[in-house]
């Protein structure tokens, strides 16, 4: 009974939900970014590297004296550039999206560490910046601006995908590029554009870590969040609203396991709790994704006029 009561205590506390929203933010942004790429038919496994680069670029801009929002823009621009690389290799050249994506992740991650070390060769403890502060709002609403940006993005992307001509065009190239071309659309340009936009969002997810959640850049700080986003896209059946639900659900598991670790005080090894969100994600994926109807042209390169 004790444990149920304390669990309820946790679930009604504002601090818990504050943490949930904070934890969820990078997942929301990253999942939306991946979702846009995949809706256009391009799997972007570069996400982990793009997030790392976004985290580094955002932090470095601020550390070098730029404003926080300048850091956000710099991160997005770097993300879009890596996205352009991924798109250039996978769309016009039609290379394997898996292999290219893993290459982009390795490149983005190593490049970030390299540039960081180049600028700060001696730093033993990571230098810090003054990050975004929570807005003066009551309870769980006291979040940093980037969290609100992420929430606004959910609505904005849902609107663009389902209510505008360009959104329909992006969905069409992800479903049937030959049909899109027969309707006079430029498949290559649409796919490159979508991958760049999606990658910019992934980089924002990374920048949130260094500009809002923490105040420094560490090695391995993205720590697999990008891979979770890839799973969340499937969980969300490629829909922005469900992506938000998925990200929040994962964040709830994550925030809960932190508190459970403290509550049970050493009865179980803490790694068991660390594992919990991932296990539950796999379970949720198994239950939901079996029925998911994925974009039909996902991972299929399109070559014009091929016989």
């Amino acid at each position: 009974m004790d444990i149920v009561a304390s669990l309820l205590d946790i679930l009604v506390s504002a601090a818990f939900w504050t943490a949930v929203l904070r934890i969820a933010t990078p997942y929301v942004l990253g999942t939306l970014g991946e979702l846009i790429c995949e809706r256009a038919g391009v799997l972007n496994l570069g996400i982990e590297g793009i997030m790392t680069l976004g985290a580094m670029a955002g932090w470095m801009t601020v550390y070098q004296g730029g404003g926080l929002w300048a850091g956000v823009l710099a991160a997005a621009a770097c993300g879009a550039l890596l996205g352009l690389l991924h798109a250039a290799l996978t769309v016009p050249l039609g290379l394997s999206q898996h292999v290219t994506g893993i290459g982009v992740t390795l490149l983005g991650t190593s490049l970030s560490y390299f540039v960081y070390r180049l600028v700060l060769p001696q730093a033993s403890t990571p230098p810090t910046i003054v990050p975004f502060q929570p807005l003066p709002l009551p309870g769980a609403l006291a979040q940093t601006p980037l969290t609100y940006v992420a929430l606004a993005m959910v609505a904005a992307i849902a609107y663009v995908l389902y209510r505008t001509p360009v959104g329909l065009a992006v969905r069409m190239v992800g479903e049937n590029p030959a049909a899109a071309e027969a309707q006079g659309l430029n498949v290559t340009a649409l796919r490159i554009g979508a991958v760049m936009a999606g990658s910019a969002l992934m980089a924002l997810a990374g920048a949130f870590l260094t500009l809002s959640a923490f105040n420094a850049f560490f090695f391995n700080m993205v720590n697999g969040r990008g891979w979770i986003c890839i799973a969340l896209v499937v969980f969300a059946s490629w829909r922005p609203g469900k992506a938000l639900v998925g990200a929040l659900l994962f964040a709830v598991f994550d925030a809960l396991q932190l508190r459970l670790q403290q509550m049970t005080g050493g009865v179980l090894p803490y790694q068991v709790f660390l594992m919990m969100p991932y296990l539950l994600s796999i379970l949720a994926l198994v239950l939901v994704a079996r029925r998911a109807s994925y974009p039909r042209a996902l991972m299929i390169p399109y070559r014009k006029g091929e016989r």
Partner: peptide, 29 residues
Amino acid sequence: VHQHFTLADNLSVLDNVTVGTESLWRIRS
């Protein structure tokens, strides 16, 4: 009208007919 239809299976009839007919950057279809 191609022999192998060029339609996107997961989209609606209206979506399939109208895609590419409006200026891409219209704010609302």
